[in-house]
């Protein structure tokens, strides 16, 4: 089990790329922080989520 945006999520072993797609996030509108570090978009496919990870998906909305 790991935490995504404060919620328990059963996604250990999945890549960040597949978790993001399954969870319905729009990849071009997000930034992902994992255990205090930003994961660059180019690394989503090779980043494997692990038990105990703390992930924040920052979903940007328009306006400025």
């Amino acid at each position: 089990m790991l935490k995504v945006n404060g919620q328990d999520v059963d996604a250990a072993g999945k890549t960040l790329e597949s978790y993001i797609a399954e969870a319905g996030f729009n990849k071009v509108r997000i930034a992902v922080e994992r255990n205090g570090e930003i994961v660059p978009k180019s690394k989503y496919g090779e980043t494997v989520l692990a038990d105990g990870d703390c992930v924040e998906v920052v979903n940007f909305v328009g306006g400025g």
Partner: peptide, 18 residues
């Protein structure tokens, strides 16, 4: 970052942090 479009915001954040 002071853009209006969400994808531009995400692009800049990703680019700067990387």
């Amino acid at each position: 970052e002071a853009f209006d479009k969400a994808d531009a915001k995400a692009m800049l954040v990703d680019t700067v942090l990387e």
